[in-house]
Design a protein around this nucleic acid. Structure first.
Length: 467
RNA sequence: GCGCCCUUCGUCUAGUGGUCUAGGACGUCGCCCUUUCACGGCGAAAACACGGGUUCGAGUCCCGUAGGGCGUACCA
């Protein structure tokens, strides 16, 4: 027995951006290919010229790259293969497996209407299926589909799915303008590209029945099908724009690391026991079509946030600093210089401890990214009054003589609070305001150390001078 | 309308006839830690859609019902 190498593909239509559902489909295909040492191919389904744009194609490339889903070989343009699609249609015609249908769209619509009125099946039955006397008029090429028996698709996730052939119509292969339909194009392309496993959304499950008919007519072998459930929004309806963030770039912009995104998306309708948090390497090791469930999953931002935080905390500090500066560049923010980056890396353990997304890192590390004079936000400013000002003034005197280490500073400040009979928080919060301009930040002792003696004291002096 | 698919805590899921008085994770609530916010630790509430079968025994198999989804184009 020869083992044929696995070939999967992702085949999006370039009509906008990389949809979150599409991204998950791409991820499954990628994971399966990588898990089996196979190939992951990309095909752009751009045969609908009116809706396809080069920008959308670029957006899909960008989305996949950001997610880290690298594809093998050149991306295939379906549009460029229409000659080949037509060729197959001709072959089918020659074999008698397809026929020319001269019914107009109006006639078809009429047929369906009367069928509906009479309570019959609305599946169109072309009068040209067995006609011998053909007019000289525009025609479409239809598949001569079997009318008896049933068509069965063995799907690795859905199981055995069967349709009575009488419910399937003679689908159109070539339109009256000679261009191929989607049904024909997918089948031909998948075959020519050597795709062994078709992993796609279960909105294509019904299409599989008709595609299999084309395959059979051409006497081509069938790929393994895996129709995976769709991703729904938090309200249970198909994930769309009104759910807030339909495109992968939205998640990039919100500051989720790609690794967290892969982890979260992988866990939607797929699982490996109780594993929740894992690396991409582990996902590749564990992934299998047999552990995909049939039910649609709802997208849950809360869980994504949690996973994202875990990934942030697991990341290396230098790597995280890079991720942070890349994000700042992406958001058109001034990118910190080498010196500031070094400080960010040092502070990173404290910053990442309380972050879920990259912008949280930015917020936490704000004190390192801002220069004197510090601007306080509203909550921070509320901490400053005559009492806290006086307190800080007395504290500063102590600080000037303190040894500038985390432990010594902590000891000095605690001693001060004790003498003033103040709860530590009463001392810390005003300090936080003055040093960071925020009401939340890493530990003040850390902040003092990160900032250094000179900068810390200067920030306090600024405030006192402004009084 | 017709066809196909789906249905375990609020959410993601484990579960492949007995070990399920149903496990984990997120979220929620409580307690602890604590200078804020987080993180972390401990604990709690919380589900087999419903009804029939099959079986000694069903979350697990079969059939209905209900609910949801997808499809039903000379779109992809």
């Amino acid at each position: 027995m020869t083992t044929t190498p696995v070939v999967t593909r992702f085949a999006p239509s370039p009509t906008g951006f990389l949809h979150i559902g599409g991204a998950r489909t791409a991820l499954f295909n990628w994971l399966f290919a990588r898990a089996n040492g196979g190939k992951f191919l990309l095909r752009i389904e751009d045969t609908d010229r009116a809706r396809s744009t080069p920008e959308a194609t670029e957006a899909i490339f960008a989305g996949l790259k950001w997610l880290g889903l690298d594809w093998d070989d050149e991306a295939v343009s379906q549009f460029e293969r229409i000659e080949r699609h037509a060729e197959v249609a001709q072959e089918l015609l020659a074999k008698g497996a397809a026929y020319k249908c001269f019914s107009t769209q109006e006639e078809i619509a009429q047929y369906r209407e009367t069928a509906k009125d009479e309570g019959r099946s609305t599946v169109f039955r072309s009068p040209w299926r067995d006609a011998t006397d053909l007019p000289d008029a525009p025609y479409v090429v239809r598949l001569r589909a079997p009318r008896d028996g049933e068509t069965v698709v063995e799907d690795v996730v859905q199981g055995r799915v069967a349709w009575k052939n009488e419910t399937l119509d003679d689908l159109i292969l070539l339109r009256s303008d000679g261009t191929p339909t989607y049904m024909l194009a997918v089948v031909v392309d998948d075959h020519d590209m050597g795709v062994t496993h078709v992993i796609r959304g279960d909105d294509h499950l019904t299409n599989a029945a008709r595609q299999v008919l084309i395959l059979d007519a051409m006497e081509w072998s069938r790929p393994t099908y895996a129709h995976i459930p769709l991703i729904h929004g938090e309200d249970g309806a198909k994930f769309s724009k009104r759910h807030g963030a339909p495109g992968v770039e939205d998640y990039r912009d919100m500051g989720y690391p790609a690794e967290a995104m892969r982890n979260y998306l992988a866990r939607l309708s797929w699982s490996h026991g109780d594993e929740e948090f894992f690396t991409t390497e582990q996902a590749i090791e564990w992934f299998g079509l047999d552990t995909i469930s049939k039910g649609a999953a709802r997208f849950d931002f809360k869980k994504l946030d949690n996973l994202s935080g875990q990934h942030l905390r697991a990341m290396d500090d230098v790597e995280l600093t890079e991720l942070l500066t890349d994000y700042m560049a992406l958001q058109q923010m001034p990118v910190p210089n080498q010196d500031t980056r070094a400080k960010l890396t040092v502070a990173m353990p404290a910053l990442k401890d309380r972050a879920k997304k990259i912008p949280d890192l930015l917020e936490m590390g704000h004190y390192l990214l801002t220069a004197r004079p510090i601007e306080m936000d509203e909550k921070a400013a509320a901490q400053i009054n005559d009492v806290s000002r006086g307190m800080l003034e007395r504290l500063t005197v102590r600080l000037r003589n303190a040894n500038w280490s985390h432990n010594d500073l902590e000891a000095a400040i605690k001693a001060f609070a004790g003498e003033e009979e103040l709860k530590l928080g009463k001392v810390m919060q005003p300090m936080r305001s003055v040093l960071t301009g925020r009401s939340t930040s890493p530990s003040i002792f850390d902040v003092l150390v990160h900032l250094g003696r000179e900068e810390s004291l200067a920030r306090i002096d600024d405030m006192l001078a402004a009084a």
